[in-house]
Amino acid sequence: MHSPYSFEKKVEEMKPSKSDINWVIMDYLVSEGYPGAAEKFAQESNLCQPTDVEGIRERVRVRNAIHSGRIEEAIGMVNEIDPEILDLNPQLHFQLLQLQLIEIIRTVLDKQSAQKTVAARDFLPAITFATEQLSPRAPTDPRYLTALEETMALMVYTPEKMPAEFKKLLDVKLREKVASDINKAILESRGERTEAKIRSLVRARAWAETQAMEAKITVLPSPIRLDAANNHANGDDDSMSS
């Protein structure tokens, strides 16, 4: 049986090479769209300059447009990159249109909470958009129909009384999800890997721990520590760096 000490020692012996880790970092910066960091990292670590920095920036512009709710603009940009992307991914196209509908409704809802009242005709642009853009697609896939119905239901509730399953449609997380899917689709259209390797690497750590527990291995590694020198990532609260 291994003592904790010898397990920690074993961990030290398994240290990966810096060039492997640097590769993983660069892979992430490129595929998930951090062009400034990718350029600097290439300089500082002597890795090859990412071949297509403009390509990264292009994907970042699409991502930012979706994040900030400028969906029509994002669709335009995607079609400019490669008109086939949305044709080949009808579900993704539908999600973008759904997002666009949500944004139209959101403006009305915002107005509603500001003025405490709303006229039925304020929803007219939303209904027009739904009937012209989304309802023709709905019959092709039952999931589309459900999504469309849920989205339309947003107009029925006042923001205070809205059930959680509808409220999540208004959450920015949905934008993040669609933006990430679009990013993958663009990468795929260019014949590149769609997911950064670091994601699997991190999952492998969680998976390995589960496997070890299933095998009744009693000595488990110390938890991940992210001490100090870490001001990154969406102004995370301090509790996680302890």
Binding site: V11, M14, P16, I21, A208, Q211, A212, R225
Partner: peptide, 20 residues
Amino acid sequence: AALEKLCAQTEALLDETAMR
């Protein structure tokens, strides 16, 4: 760094488990 440690821990865990 934490990322390196995460890698090494994963490897060590896989090792222990595969041996078992």
